[in-house]
Design a protein around this nucleic acid. Structure first.
Length: 134
DNA sequence: CGTATGACGAGCC
DNA sequence: AGGCTCGCCATAC
């Protein structure tokens, strides 16, 4: 097939996002901003959301499905997809989170203080270099 | 190459 | 507390 002059989706940045998301452990959640930063996109929180939007169904990284449902916004809520109403995606996300033992309130509020993935620290968790993490 | 969009985030009112 | 606006990054057209 006519090789696409330019890939419809740039696997370069997106795959980074996906890789980071793939590292979120079960029962934990991460924010778009956190994922973006860990993927080296700086403040590309929106880009992270975009990457998940473009996440190929059934994609596996390291032989494992990408837990896209573990990514929520900084407000600790499931981000609305922007439809007129709540779509199946949000509902599915909530169910999957609850299925992992994450408590989601009726309003879709999640306790970040409790379920936030400390992946950033995990990278260098061996030693707490920073005395005061800001 | 410039404009518009998007599963965001932080700040301000 | 809740809602609105502006700023950021990458992709699409």
């Amino acid at each position: 097939m006519a090789r696409r002059a330019r890939p419809a989706t740039n696997p370069d940045s997106f795959s980074r996002i996906w890789s980071v998301v793939a590292r979120i452990p079960r029962g934990k959640v991460a924010t778009y901003g956190q994922v973006a930063r860990m993927a080296g996109l700086g403040r590309g929180a929106r880009t992270a959301g975009w990457a998940l939007h473009a996440l190929p169904d059934g994609l596996r990284i390291d032989g494992r499905a990408v837990p896209w449902h573990r990514v929520i916004n900084a407000s600790g809520r499931i981000s609305p997809r922007g439809g007129d109403g709540e779509g199946p995606a949000e509902t599915r996300q909530r169910l999957r989170l609850r299925r992992e033992g994450i408590r989601v309130t009726g309003k879709g509020q999640i306790d970040l203080h409790r379920y936030a993935w400390s992946g950033e620290c995990a990278l260098s968790a061996r030693r707490q270099g920073r005395s005061s993490a800001r």
